Each structure stands twice: as structure tokens, then as C-alpha cells.
Simulated scan of single mutants.
Amino acid sequence: MTRTETAGFRPVLLLTGAYVALSVLTFVVIVLFRDHPAMVTDAVWVRATIVVASSLLTFAFARSAARGSRKGLLRLRIVSAVMLVAIVVIVVLPGLFPLWLRIEQAACGVLLLGVTLLVNGRALRAR
């Protein structure tokens, strides 16, 4: 893949990098507030762990796709769409998670929506 083709992935790399940063920051906040059961429930711990892992995978797949890997692009397309659906469910279901985590997940969803739209768009797939 040429430098010009790799540059087409720059927005995807930025969005997935922001997803990693937000996920890791959220996990740090959870660790800091672990003694506040109203804010940090067992479900919050589980969800945050899954989100950090998926964000790291998403970023790794984005880097692989940016280097020209078709498998990396396919994996990125699948993971970003699946996580986006999971986030939508978490945001709309009342009572499952504290409001602060649902807001954070909505922000992650916006980032993943951008990724999903970009990696499934004609311009990027054509590269």
C-alpha cells in the first residue's frame, strides 16, 4: 500500500485511537472510584474490561488494514459493527448501567459509528 493509500486510513486510525484512549481513561476512573458502589458495579467492571479489550483489538485491526491487510479490514468492519450494536443496546436499556457509563458508551458509539461508516464506505473499500 502506498503512502497515499495509507493516508486514507488516517481518520479511521484517529477514531480508533480515540476509542482506545476513552476506554482506558474510563477504566482508570473505575479503578479510582472502585469504593463507590453506586458508581462502580460488577456490571461496570465487566463492561469496561470488555470495552478496553475490544478497543485495543479495533485499533490493531485498523493498523493492519491501513498496512493493506484485507483480513485486517474485514476484522475491523466486523468488530466495529458488532461493538456499535452492543453499545446502542447498553445506552438504550434503562437501569443496566449507571448514567455516567451510558454517556461514556454513547461517546464510544459515536467514535465507532464513524469507523463503521468509513470502513464500509466505497472510497476506503476501493483502496
Rank of each mutant, 00 (worst) to 15 (best):
residue 1 M to K: 07
residue 2 T to L: 05
residue 2 T to I: 02
residue 3 R to D: 14
residue 4 T to Q: 14
residue 4 T to N: 11
residue 7 A to D: 13
residue 7 A to Q: 12
residue 10 R to F: 08
residue 10 R to E: 15
residue 10 R to T: 15
residue 11 P to R: 06
residue 11 P to H: 07
residue 11 P to T: 07
residue 14 L to T: 09
residue 16 T to I: 03
residue 16 T to P: 01
residue 17 G to N: 09
residue 19 Y to V: 04
residue 19 Y to L: 09
residue 19 Y to A: 15
residue 20 V to R: 15
residue 24 V to E: 13
residue 26 T to P: 00
residue 26 T to Y: 03
residue 27 F to W: 12
residue 28 V to I: 13
residue 28 V to F: 12
residue 29 V to P: 00
residue 29 V to T: 12
residue 30 I to W: 01
residue 30 I to Q: 12
residue 32 L to I: 11
residue 32 L to F: 10
residue 32 L to C: 05
residue 32 L to A: 13
residue 33 F to G: 04
residue 35 D to A: 14
residue 35 D to I: 00
residue 37 P to E: 13
residue 38 A to L: 13
residue 39 M to V: 10
residue 40 V to I: 15
residue 41 T to V: 02
residue 41 T to N: 03
residue 41 T to P: 01
residue 41 T to W: 01
residue 41 T to Q: 04
residue 41 T to Y: 02
residue 43 A to S: 15
residue 47 R to F: 05
residue 48 A to D: 11
residue 48 A to F: 02
residue 49 T to G: 15
residue 50 I to Q: 15
residue 50 I to V: 14
residue 50 I to N: 14
residue 51 V to K: 01
residue 51 V to M: 08
residue 51 V to W: 01
residue 51 V to T: 15
residue 52 V to Q: 07
residue 53 A to V: 13
residue 54 S to N: 14
residue 54 S to T: 06
residue 54 S to R: 12
residue 55 S to E: 01
residue 55 S to I: 02
residue 55 S to N: 03
residue 61 F to I: 00
residue 61 F to Q: 04
residue 62 A to N: 03
residue 62 A to Y: 07
residue 63 R to N: 10
residue 64 S to C: 02
residue 65 A to M: 08
residue 66 A to D: 02
residue 67 R to N: 13
residue 67 R to C: 08
residue 68 G to P: 01
residue 69 S to Y: 08
residue 69 S to G: 06
residue 69 S to A: 10
residue 70 R to G: 06
residue 71 K to L: 14
residue 73 L to A: 14
residue 73 L to N: 01
residue 74 L to C: 02
residue 77 R to D: 00
residue 78 I to M: 05
residue 79 V to F: 06
residue 81 A to R: 08
residue 81 A to Y: 05
residue 81 A to G: 02
residue 83 M to Y: 08
residue 84 L to Y: 08
residue 86 A to R: 07
residue 86 A to Q: 13
residue 87 I to Y: 07
residue 87 I to G: 12
residue 88 V to A: 14
residue 88 V to G: 08
residue 89 V to T: 05
residue 89 V to S: 03
residue 91 V to T: 04
residue 92 V to R: 03
residue 92 V to G: 00
residue 93 L to A: 11
residue 94 P to Y: 05
residue 96 L to W: 10
residue 96 L to P: 00
residue 97 F to V: 06
residue 97 F to H: 14
residue 98 P to G: 09
residue 99 L to A: 14
residue 99 L to C: 02
residue 102 R to S: 06
residue 103 I to R: 11
residue 104 E to A: 15
residue 106 A to W: 07
residue 107 A to H: 03
residue 107 A to I: 09
residue 110 V to M: 12
residue 111 L to A: 05
residue 111 L to W: 04
residue 111 L to Y: 04
residue 111 L to H: 05
residue 111 L to Q: 04
residue 113 L to V: 01
residue 115 V to P: 04
residue 116 T to I: 04
residue 116 T to D: 09
residue 118 L to G: 00
residue 120 N to E: 04
residue 120 N to F: 14
residue 124 L to Q: 08
residue 124 L to S: 08
residue 126 A to E: 14
residue 126 A to Y: 00
residue 127 R to Q: 13
